[in-house]
Design a protein around this nucleic acid. Structure first.
Length: 463
RNA sequence: GGCGGCGUGGCCGAGCGGUUAGGCAGGGGCCUGCAAAGCCCCGUAGUCCGGUUCGACUCCGGACGCCGCCUCCA
């Protein structure tokens, strides 16, 4: 059974499932008003890898991740660009999915848009008002945090201490600086929806609690997001569910930051790199390997250096895939791999990596183990034990695929006639021990962008 | 001010009270016509100061430094 750190209890504990064999996961998605940056890339890769792994082990995963398509930032952007909010949201949502596809993040089971759930949000807010937990002011409806007994649990601080440090601008009509807007009254020119308590639009914290409960039902298993969502966003989601006596997420998981020279990458610091830009110049799989190589709760440095580093180490796995002709695993799973790889050695590898991942998703140890196994596989093959090497390589490829990392095996590169001729000439030169001519032809091929290796059957080229 | 985290070899980055993390880069060797790929060997790191212990990078205390959350933020 998978054990994961739970931010609410502060301990690594078993991820208990509401329905045996099925996992329900909600991950807070993006607000679409700008290009995705590396931080978005990390959280989507981390939770996508977890999702894939759980699925690989045989669980049926329902994975929900929202798109926030109405909020202050979108309105600001629309005003600045002289466009409608829907146009802005639509454009950046397109960029979002393109980037997700590029880094190999699987489409969530459901991708709810906030604007599609406003009616349900209005109902929730009405209930809160009815219970006297939310109250109306001149600019909207606010949630009274003092009405939730354990408010501050996710923040790890009691209400009083949070209140003391509150940096929120005090709005006169708010009862506490920590009270948050569940509804914002309509302003001229802004999109709005009808509601008995006044036309307007929903607050961010209400969106996620409504959509997660609506699609996954009460008491769903796991709620994930970046560390900064822990408070106040997740705390406020919890508070609303709690105020309405609805069982909420049973387990909370938060991923660490992308760091830039020691600082958190963030919009407000302006030190972010667009995910789209980075993908344009690197093998997108390198970012996944970089993410998996460190623990999901640790901060990671993402710089051209660390990405290039990951790219080179990825090349070793790809070389293995070529050498042993590892198939691209698509619908692979753990049980099937155990059946296929029934040597003692490969079973041990599968089980060891499985055990590591079940221990708070210890991907760095898992990856290290796979690198070690890679060396063993190559050494075995070098020593003449080709079958042994191949069995290990296939197990490695399957496990990596289980984490969403597809190896690049033998590619059927398009070799034009001219290049093919150079290869043939080089093989002839080598056969005739005409080394200077063979080297000249190799240089020629390299100049044309090919990587050249001498195999037992002659010159091997690839891009 | 409150709460939390971090400080590891050239770089990235882990687990662990005593036994090799791993990757990248670098050096030496094997293989190769030469390369490439692959294999083998190598640097024996843990901010500082105390303490606990037979033994600490790993536990405790302190100092210094850095970061995050308490405001929109993945």
């Amino acid at each position: 059974m998978v054990r994961l750190y739970d931010s609410l209890s502060g301990t690594v504990r078993e991820l208990r499932l509401r329905d045996p064999g099925r996992v329900s996961i909600y991950v807070c998605g993006p607000t679409v008003y700008d290009f995705p940056h590396l931080g978005h890339g990390r959280f989507t890769l981390v939770w996508d890898a977890l999702r894939r792994w759980l699925s690989y082990t045989g669980l049926e995963v329902t994975y929900v991740s929202n798109i926030t398509d109405i909020d202050d930032n979108i309105i600001a952007r629309a005003n600045r660009d002289g466009r409608t909010e829907a146009e802005v949201a639509g454009e950046y949502e397109d960029h979002w999915w393109k980037a997700m596809a590029a880094i190999g993040v699987a489409r969530p089971t459901h991708t709810p848009h906030a604007t599609e759930f406003v009616a349900a949000m209005v109902e929730t807010i009405s209930s809160l008002i009815l219970r006297n937990i939310a109250y109306r002011t001149s600019d909207g409806v606010y949630f009274d945090v003092s009405r939730v007994a354990d408010y501050g649990l996710l923040a790890g601080q009691p209400l009083e201490s949070l209140r003391a440090g509150a940096r929120v601008e005090m709005v006169l009509e708010k009862r506490s600086p920590l009270d948050f807007a569940v509804w914002k009254n309509a302003k001229a020119g802004e999109p709005s929806w009808p509601a008995p308590f006044g036309d307007g639009r929903p607050g961010w914290h209400t969106e996620c609690v409504v959509m997660s409960l609506d699609l996954l039902g009460p008491g769903f298993d796991l709620h994930c997001g970046g560390m900064d969502l822990r408070f106040p966003h997740h705390e406020n989601e919890r508070a609303q569910a709690s105020a309405l006596d609805l069982p909420f997420a049973q387990h909370w998981a938060h991923n660490g930051w992308v760091m830039v020279g020691g600082d958190k990458m963030s919009k407000s610091l302006g030190n972010f790199t667009s995910l789209t830009d980075m993908l344009a110049q690197t093998d997108s799989r390198a970012y996944r390997l970089l993410v998996l190589r460190s623990h999901y709760r640790s901060p990671i440095e993402v710089t051209p250096t660390t990405v290039a580093d990951a790219e080179r180490s990825l090349e070793r796995f790809d070389a293995m895939a070529r050498r042993f002709d590892v198939p691209v695993h698509r619908s692979e799973n753990f049980a099937r791999s155990r059946e296929l790889n029934w040597s003692e050695e490969t079973l041990a590898l599968l089980d060891r990596v499985g055990a590591l991942l079940e221990n708070d998703f210890d991907t760095p140890q898992a990856i290290a183990t796979l690198f070690e196994a890679l060396t063993v596989a190559n050494a075995a093959a070098d020593g003449g034990e080709m079958d042994r090497g191949r069995a290990l390589a296939h197990a490695i490829g399957s496990l990596l695929a289980g984490l969403g990392l597809a190896l690049r095996g033998e590619e059927k590169a398009d070799i034009d006639g001219e290049t093919a001729l150079l290869v043939r000439e080089r093989d002839e030169a080598r056969a005739g021990k005409n080394w200077s001519e063979a080297d000249r032809l190799r240089d020629e091929l390299v100049a044309r962008g090919w990587k050249v290796e001498d195999g037992s059957a002659g010159t091997i080229i690839r891009r």
